[in-house]
Design a protein around this nucleic acid. Structure first.
Length: 288
DNA sequence: CTTGGGTCCTGTGCGC
DNA sequence: TGCGCACAGGACCCAA
């Protein structure tokens, strides 16, 4: 799935297109994704103006002038594509926008008042959409238990040390736990642990304070680097404009099983192990 | 409380 | 060419 950097890239792509626009038409083409859509979702989206686009963890939040906020999660395979209005036809004054017909996994299609079309496509349907009052958005069931944003001020070494203390779970699982820190996924946990020389198997409660001090800025750096690169393009993830992100070329361990460790003078080989059902890539020689 | 495992769903790439 | 299996960026829910 898109992890935090990919979701932030999508948010940045949507922001200039959606902010200030009115949703002229909402085509909700199935009753659910991972969960049922909220009642009357199409009606509640129609005729409302988008006032802001925010991100919390891997969720995109679109504030609406109806007093509600649209919550959007891309799951593992969710994509959002933006189709610009057909300029040629608009010039003729017809305001007929020749968008291509929806494809197989186009589940929700939003047509904006300027003719732009926003398409939510998600083959695996692990994604989600919901509507809630803007005033209580943070109390939404999916958001209430989230830990701090890794790029925010609340995520620091004392906080992380407190959350890891006494934990018998491997570091891999601890950093994937959205209640400890929100937004990391399989790729960026692997990359952050490699950059900080920590084994994904290291028990969270056994990590020294000095190493926690080092880990926190490394997490920030990995995510910042990835956002700057427009996220990672794997399989079907693309930016909203169809462009590919290119951070996947900067992976140091993810997907490199059997390849030599890139650490100067290490000489180790990248290994893949399975932890809580997910692949962990790491160098057993320089990650301890 | 924490922790591990199963589950949802479709698509792709590999070995045979 | 076809078939079955492993694997894929997430996260909820439940049992122990």
């Amino acid at each position: 799935m898109p992890e935090l950097p990919e979701v932030e890239t999508v948010r940045r792509g949507l922001e200039p297109v959606l902010t200030g626009r009115v949703i002229a038409r909402a085509d909700v083409r199935r009753p659910d994704l991972r969960w049922p859509f909220p009642p009357r979702m199409a009606e509640r989206l129609t005729g409302v103006r988008v006032t802001a686009l925010r991100r919390r963890s891997k969720y995109i939040l679109a504030d609406l002038d109806s007093g509600e906020t649209l919550l959007l999660h891309l799951g593992m395979s969710g994509r959002i594509l933006i189709h610009a209005a057909d300029a040629g036809r608009a010039m003729l004054g017809e305001y007929v926008h020749a968008h291509p017909a929806p494809e197989t996994h186009d589940h929700v299609v939003l047509d904006l008042d300027d003719g732009t079309r926003i398409v939510f496509n998600d083959p695996r349907r692990f994604g989600a959409m919901d509507l809630m009052p803007t005033a209580t958005a943070e109390q939404h069931k999916l958001l209430a238990g989230l830990g701090p944003e890794p790029l925010g001020n609340a995520f620091d070494a004392p906080y992380l040390a407190g959350r890891l203390a006494g934990r018998r779970t491997p570091m891999k699982a601890a950093l994937l736990d959205q209640g400890i820190v929100a937004g990391l996924g399989n790729i960026y946990v692997c990359e952050a642990l490699f950059r900080s020389g920590i084994s994904p198997r290291r028990l969270a409660g056994n990590l020294s304070r000095a190493r926690i001090d080092r880990l926190v800025p490394v997490i920030r750096d990995v995510l910042s680097d990835a956002i700057a690169a427009g996220g990672s393009s794997l399989r079907d993830y693309r930016q909203t404009d169809g462009e590919l992100g290119y951070f996947q070329h900067s992976f140091r361990v993810y997907g490199r099983e059997g390849a030599p460790c890139i650490t100067e003078g290490c000489g180790g080989t990248v290994a893949r192990i399975v932890q809580s059902g997910r692949s962990s890539f790491y160098c057993p020689h320089c990650q301890r």
